[in-house]
Design a protein around this nucleic acid. Sequence first.
DNA 1: CGGACTATTGAGACTCCTCAACTAACGTGG
DNA 2: CCACGTTAGTTGAGGAGTCTCAATAGTCCG
Lengths: 238, 238
Amino acid sequence: MSASELAIRAIPFEKLTAAGVATQLLTERHRQNLSGLATSLNVPRRTIFYREETPAEWVFMISKGVVKSYRELPSGKRHIATFLFPGDVFGLAENGRFVNTTQAITRVTLYRIPVDALKDLLLRDADLQFRFLVKVTHQLREAQRHTINVTRHTATGKFAMFIKMLERDEHWRAESSGPRTLMMPMTRTDIADYLGLSPEAVSRTTSRLVRRGILAFPDRHRVRILNPSELDRLAGAA
Amino acid sequence: MSASELAIRAIPFEKLTAAGVATQLLTERHRQNLSGLATSLNVPRRTIFYREETPAEWVFMISKGVVKSYRELPSGKRHIATFLFPGDVFGLAENGRFVNTTQAITRVTLYRIPVDALKDLLLRDADLQFRFLVKVTHQLREAQRHTINVTRHTATGKFAMFIKMLERDEHWRAESSGPRTLMMPMTRTDIADYLGLSPEAVSRTTSRLVRRGILAFPDRHRVRILNPSELDRLAGAA
DNA sequence: CGGACTATTGAGACTCCTCAACTAACGTGG
DNA sequence: CCACGTTAGTTGAGGAGTCTCAATAGTCCG
């Protein structure tokens, strides 16, 4: 793999209080620069923004809601590359075509920006571009973490690390010190496709974690962490 | 995962004839901008450039040779995030500290640039920064491919896709239409750590592929592809 | 309220991991 | 330059874990 890495001291915009894309990724000036280009959209869940291999004409920035980015594999299996949350940017392309398919998991509010106009803007505004560079670098770190996660062979460890990921994400979006109940809008099948497990394995794993008193599921889209230290132990024993 | 993606029509510098970092990533003007900052190094194999968690003060650009980037997991296992080839940039950091450990697999020639100076330069030169943005975006795509690869459960499929990766890399570095014998400087243990397999599983897989007449190994660091179509079939049956 | 999709639970097959022993290769020092 | 010691790689046998197939229960949406 001809992968590279980039060390640029990260601008801690993750630490800013979050109230949508604007305050997380952009300053007021940046937002004004983008406002002329961006179209605001509000779509119901299951909306597909684009399909893999189609011409990549836009970049998207999530304001509210959750999106999944996935590929259909030749075997017919579905591999979810990443879940995208408010503040995230998506539209990864290669040779002018989208790499993944993206679909709304919940109702989503986002901004859509023509890629050519964005490129011009980034070339004129190095400071704004740097925000994007930091953002993509962050995604690269997360992708590497994800790889480590799915490489492990125990379903319990994978699922525990998935919960930790949700917690991490929830945490920097809402500055609260972490309520113990997390929202989990994706389906069990989505989680399976993300972790590289069968839906059955996910189901067995959740049952086991509930039986052991580590997690509880008030409903299917909510998870309560009853034993954080034990969860950490399971997540860390890679 | 708060992962995002970025669609910027890729500058096809992968397609340029390669003669080191300069022509791949940078124009003459860019190189002059960087030359005052960069230190050229030439180190023997096994040299460790930095260890995970240490302060991230530099960014590196490979001119010749191959580098591995890995993490030691709590379990004592070693997970290789990526192999780095000529033209690649590395030094991924988080909160001012390196994320991975990087070590030379072969003798390596590279440039070392102080991260602060690079950041200043990138903010002044939007065009140069855009090269880096494209590069990191490319790495993100590759990281996602890698994730798909290690998610599969058959050792044969993983190894086949690994060979395809080597081939892809070799191909855009040397403009030749692909000799059927590829260099493979990393050890079997490295490959195992990269694919999420045990060394034994890698060994069994290579034996099987040789027996089936798909690959041949003139020596341990060279692989010859005897049956490309069958290799494709194995690599594609994710 | 009905129908389709999603989630859960059980039983058997498959694949890789672990442990162990042996062989080959490297590289270090005499 | 050679010899030895250490590291890396190969092959075998048994065990752990998930996948697949199948059936049932639960949920969401129209």
